[in-house]
């Protein structure tokens, strides 16, 4: 199908974007890489009056590293993030996740911020961001605010970002102190590059004695939003991570999820796969941290 008519504005500054959004009264929408918005436009699931293009705003693109966080600006291409040595060394979980996102053609245009704004419950970047306790910075005409990933996903393709807000960047905190980090990302999809049926992201921190000081496990595709397995995480903290320990906590995964039935998979299958992927991700992340 073809998109319905809209007006197009090539924005020159963030101020201009928030002004247009503010006056748009919910009928203005931001386009970055277009990899999710363009299909919505051509299927007429989205019929905005105004499309604001943020691709030419230099401040919205690039990767910044500070002492305590890595900041990825909204319009940074997924391909750029994947190829970045900073991301590979400092945010290995994100690099692992992006390697599952789409194909070279879509990663060359698709942006990190776009994936977070679209918030498909099975998509990889939101899942990795949730596992890493990232937060997004949002801006509207009224001002800026930060939203933690834990509060960001409200439902399938629904986030805490209001219609008049633009996503500026996603901030990933860096582990502090003398810790060893291990990460893993696993998913099951029909073909590589498709949205995951179920995906699991694990981020494990061990102190110098090999005791788990922090554990994060996030599951995507098995509920209306990507979810952290908080009960399981609590049980992993404070002990060495052994195969027995992982087995002992795994039952928490199926309990924490309310998956849906659809043409791709049944709820029972999703629950089962979530448990299997959780085990693989935790085992691999723990092994990497112990290396």
């Amino acid at each position: 199908m073809k998109a319905a008519k809209f007006e197009y504005i090539l924005a020159e500054s963030i101020e201009q974007v928030v002004q247009v959004l503010d006056q748009g009264d919910g009928e203005a929408i931001v386009i970055a890489g277009g990899q999710t918005l363009m299909p919505m436009l051509s299927m007429r699931l989205a019929r905005p009056e105004t499309v604001i293009d943020i691709n030419k705003i230099a401040e919205l693109s690039g990767i910044e590293v500070t002492a305590d966080e890595v900041i990825i600006k909204a319009c940074t291409r997924q391909a750029e993030a994947l190829a970045s040595p900073e991301i590979q060394t400092r945010l290995p979980l994100l690099a692992k996740a992006i390697s599952y996102v789409g194909h070279q053609q879509t990663r060359n245009r698709g942006t990190v911020g776009g994936s977070l704004s679209h918030a498909d419950p099975a998509s990889e970047i939101p899942l990795a961001a949730l596992a890493m306790d990232a937060h997004v910075s949002l801006r509207s005409a009224a001002g800026a605010r930060r939203v933690a990933m834990a509060d960001y996903f409200l439902g399938p393709m629904m986030t805490a970002r209001a219609d008049n807000e633009v996503l500026l960047a996603v901030h990933f905190p860096l582990p502090q102190g003398d810790v060893r980090v291990g990460t893993a990302f696993h998913e099951v999809s029909e073909r590589r590059g498709d949205f995951a049926v179920v995906a699991a992201a694990a981020h494990i921190q061990l102190d110098k004695d090999g005791i788990c000081s922090n554990a994060a496990l996030a599951i995507g595709g098995a509920d209306s939003v990507p979810l952290r397995m908080t009960a399981l995480e609590d049980r992993l903290r404070g002990d060495a991570i052994t195969p027995e320990r992982i087995q002992a906590v795994l039952a928490d995964v199926a309990n924490a999820l309310t998956p849906g039935n659809d043409q791709h998979a049944s709820a029972a299958y999703r629950r089962r796969v979530a448990t299997v992927l959780a085990e693989r991700a935790l085992t691999e992340a723990a092994a990497e941290a112990q290396e």
């Binding site: 199908m1 073809k2 277009g34 363009m38 499309v51 070279q104 053609q105 879509t106 060359n108 245009r109």
Partner: peptide, 27 residues
């Protein structure tokens, strides 16, 4: 498909492959 699924519309944009149905002509 006109919505980014099949890849038939692939072109090179500044030397890298992209899907031309997922980009506005103005862009």
């Amino acid at each position: 498909c006109e919505h980014g699924v099949c890849g038939a519309c692939s072109i090179l944009l500044d030397g890298v492959p992209i899907r031309s149905c997922l980009m506005l002509a103005v862009q």
